[in-house]
Write a protein that binds this DNA or RNA. Sequence first.
DNA 1: CGCGGCAGTGCAACCGTTTGCACTGTCCGA
DNA 2: TCGGACAGTGCAAACGGTTGCACTGCCGCG
Lengths: 343, 343
Amino acid sequence: MSTHRASISDLAAQLNLSVSTISRALSDHASISDATKRRVWDLARQLNYQPNQLAAALRKGRSNTLGVIVPHIDGHFFALVLKGIENGANQAGFNVMICQSNENAVHEKKNLETLLNAQVEGILVSLSLTTKDVRHFEDVRRRDLPLVFFDRILESPEVSAVVLDDYQGAYQAMKHLIGQGCTRIAHIGGPQHLNICKNRYRAYVDALRDHDLPYDPTLVHFCDLTLPEGHEAMEVLLRQNPGLDAVFSANDLAVAGAMQVLRAAGRRIPEDVALAGFSNELFTLLTEPHLTTVDQRCEEMGRTAVRLLLDMVAEQPRRLAPRQIVLQPELLVRGSSQRRLPE
Amino acid sequence: MSTHRASISDLAAQLNLSVSTISRALSDHASISDATKRRVWDLARQLNYQPNQLAAALRKGRSNTLGVIVPHIDGHFFALVLKGIENGANQAGFNVMICQSNENAVHEKKNLETLLNAQVEGILVSLSLTTKDVRHFEDVRRRDLPLVFFDRILESPEVSAVVLDDYQGAYQAMKHLIGQGCTRIAHIGGPQHLNICKNRYRAYVDALRDHDLPYDPTLVHFCDLTLPEGHEAMEVLLRQNPGLDAVFSANDLAVAGAMQVLRAAGRRIPEDVALAGFSNELFTLLTEPHLTTVDQRCEEMGRTAVRLLLDMVAEQPRRLAPRQIVLQPELLVRGSSQRRLPE
DNA sequence: CGCGGCAGTGCAACCGTTTGCACTGTCCGA
DNA sequence: TCGGACAGTGCAAACGGTTGCACTGCCGCG
């Protein structure tokens, strides 16, 4: 058994046909007789013929490959989005090349070049935190290559993007807490230069106002939303407001930290203090009681982004207007906030 | 600005040189004069020339791409391994194509074909749970294509593989528990057809024997290691052995479940019952006390596997003997098992 | 003066597939 | 009987690089 893969010309030689006939037969072209097609197909199976995608890609100018750039691949969120992307692309017969920028703009630029050299047909990007200068994406535009941002997007009406409606998700969480009878609701917020954190904070403010609850600055604490910072935030908030009766946090990790502090301070959850987080991390089901949170539709975001990209790829004269898709999050009410039985 | 990418022949035309000279100049070939090289490089930069990897790959028969097949991409473990793989490959100038088998052998086979058609230069695989028949990997062997398994491997001396020494990790955890003075140690084990689970159980048995502790079948419970099954396992074990003083679980999720049950039963942790898990999941730092666990060196596994694969790719006459690399895990002692102060 | 060697460049084949066009033969209608 | 339509096939040029070999000068040495 040789190490040589059967090529189209091997088939041609064995059947006394030309390579063009083989090529057409394999792609079921109309102008090839059924008899010939059958002969070709039979031999192809027999020799275990597998087309060389590279050659086809080169000739057709279509690589059947999509590129993805994410800040990092570990962590719940991006992993799930990638899962959605990968599955969606595969179903459409596309391969996926994944690059990590490691939250580094220089890396991101290099990734972009790599993908362009690999002749991908379209690119999905979630920006790195350090990306300020976005000139490297100009290249993509100039080549008329479909480009879709997701989650961490370039804020511009000229680009296509898929994002979650963070504001809505946060607003729903707040509405739920208020509905449980909470009136002194604290907020643990994230870095306000991130639009996701900004939107969650905005929703907090707006929800209070819409329900005629006063805004109290001592009930709000901003931090980096890690576990220890969640601890610290809760300690500060509790000191300033011993009477608070709920906490809405911009992520799950911080609220998990807050929960530990509250427990240590003898507060019952949810009877004394109701809790709600954001992201639907796995561990929200590991705390006791389980944490109320907002699901970010990660996999759906991936599927949606890739579908949008594939639409753009298919559109021949590339005149599709840029589209922005906003996904609706889902509030998951669990024990940490459920003080009244649902009626 | 045209949509056309500058090609090597564009450079040739503009400089009145042949394409071969351009090609050689770009790759810094010795037989091209420095003056010419400089002219070529200058123009290349000016036109923003980017080589077409596809064409080069086709001609050279080297795609500069590696393929990876994982059971799934979400979840802590594989995400981290992939991170290691991706970084290692990129540093060596290789692209990575990632496929998910979704724990499905049929999918896995299809993934393999996809990667072969894409002309990858080597393949990394972690087997799906449902893979019993491994004939599809024969193709890879016949083509003389480098193949490295990791974590969930094909048990055969003829394949290259990277695995964790699960036995050692489990043994260390057991030794630690025994060192804390525990004598009635329960084990929550996983499916015994998985070698990782089998090895962890073996270590449990051996550690008891080596420390002159009796093996008691009522202290052992096998299940699928989910959170609810962890609950159930703990309930059963506690009923059968109210006096148990430690639990070693084959993963972290199950021990988290066990912890909740123990807490509900009024047991103090670690004073009454010491706990140890396996995998160093993120949430092990979210429980109170934090969970003692065994780190699996995920990223290192990825880096190691890709390095091994690249060695095989580089080896020209493919006569490298298959190598099996075993990584040493690291026991992380935390609150859930620390009954005595370290001396 | 002739010849070998070397530096620098070009020619052309090749990788495996696709595709516009030309070609052959057959059959049918006028 | 002839022309044209049509089905079925082949030729050859792409796609964008890489590479073995041939070629052209020029220089130095015997």
